[in-house]
Design a protein around this nucleic acid. Structure first.
Lengths: 199, 199
DNA sequence: TCATAGTGTCTATTAAGTAGACAGTACCCA
DNA sequence: TGGGTACTGTCTACTTAATAGACACTATGA
């Protein structure tokens, strides 16, 4: 009974509270945000906040988790985002990550703020790594022998570094341009990426 | 009984429907937007839409009116927006308009779309003119004699032209830069602007 | 011609959101 | 030191905005 059913109405309210939190973190930093700020900004009653969340930390956790879950799911579901897939060896599905981040750039911009969402700087790269580990299989050029776990970590964090740069330069490169760059760099040491669905 | 009381809850819902309309106009044009699109996007029930609005045209009207009312009110209330007022002859209050537009750029960008909010292209400049007529009194350089009604219209539409340019270039100039330009141009034929509060 | 998709209206139901009081903590500053 | 202000988290009782679903109707197009 502690977790009740989810309804569209509840989700909507939670989402609005989350959006308020994003705005307020950008405005004054997470530390300074109060529950009162959040309900003022989102125009809910203070009581309403406590129906959904115990305090701002739970709200923050929920926001982070749902965005990162969304990221994982975006990779899992068939490519709706990137339409014209470049005819390259590298699996287009990897670029769902890029599209998802771009679509939700309002959220991911949080990574450029000092006093920001708790755990964002740790969980975001961990999620990238998790996706790389669970969904992709790589092949080195000429089948050069390497520890594949290390190779996966290496490419995941390399990709993360590029993402950070793209985000913090305000997405000045277009999605297409950015994807081009990622492909070029991947090709320096990667022969192919295979997408492995579930399991 | 046709117009019931306004409550925060009602306003919030209406606002969310309005925001959905803005997004959808940008996405597919006003003509193509359906009530179903609007409630899908804003995650309300279709019935809920009809509680608040008769059809999408009433919603559009409400959106436009509230934004333009907001513009008028922004000028009327003491300058909270522009902090450091340049020590110029020209009344800083005029620049509340610029700040308001910038803060609500998501809405005002609609003016750059072809199939957009009905009446936007007529009512927006009319509102600028109304503000100029009701809130400001101008002085020509050296008290050059002109028909003051004409002079007001002339400066209002001149300002409107600059605003259009600023908006449709994606607000690349900062608020401060843009204000600078407006001041420079005003000075070519204007000795002072006086703000006249109510009446 | 039938099928599909959207419209606008209505009804009954309910649970999300509201107002308000409460005791408790933390902080400032006079 | 003590009083003032501001926010917190919990609770209660109320109401009403939001919901699901049915309805007849129109327009479109395959």
């Amino acid at each position: 009974m502690v977790e009740k059913t989810i309804t569209p109405r509840k989700n909507r309210t939670k989402e609005h509270l989350q959006l308020a939190l994003i705005d307020l973190i950008k405005e004054k930093g997470f530390q300074a945000v109060t529950v009162k700020d959040i309900v003022n900004h989102s125009k809910y009653n203070r009581s309403t906040f406590y129906i959904h969340y115990h305090d701002k930390f739970y709200l923050a956790e929920d926001l982070l988790d749902s965005m990162l879950n969304g990221l994982e799911e975006a990779v899992a579901k068939p490519y709706e985002r990137i339409k014209k897939v470049n005819t390259l060896k590298l699996n287009a599905r990897s670029f769902e990550i890029i599209s998802y981040i771009y679509e939700n750039r309002n959220f991911f911009e949080l990574i450029t703020y000092q006093d920001t969402l708790p755990e964002l700087h740790t969980k975001f790269p961990q999620t990238i790594l998790k996706i790389y580990q669970e969904k992709f299989r790589f092949k080195t050029i000429n089948n050069m022998p390497v520890d594949m776990d290390f190779f996966t970590r290496y490419t995941a964090y390399g990709f993360y570094g590029l993402l950070l740069h793209w985000i913090s330069t305000g997405f000045t490169a277009s999605q297409e341009e950015f994807i081009e760059e990622v492909i070029k760099l991947s090709r320096t040491h990667m022969a192919a990426v295979k997408y492995v669905g579930e399991k």
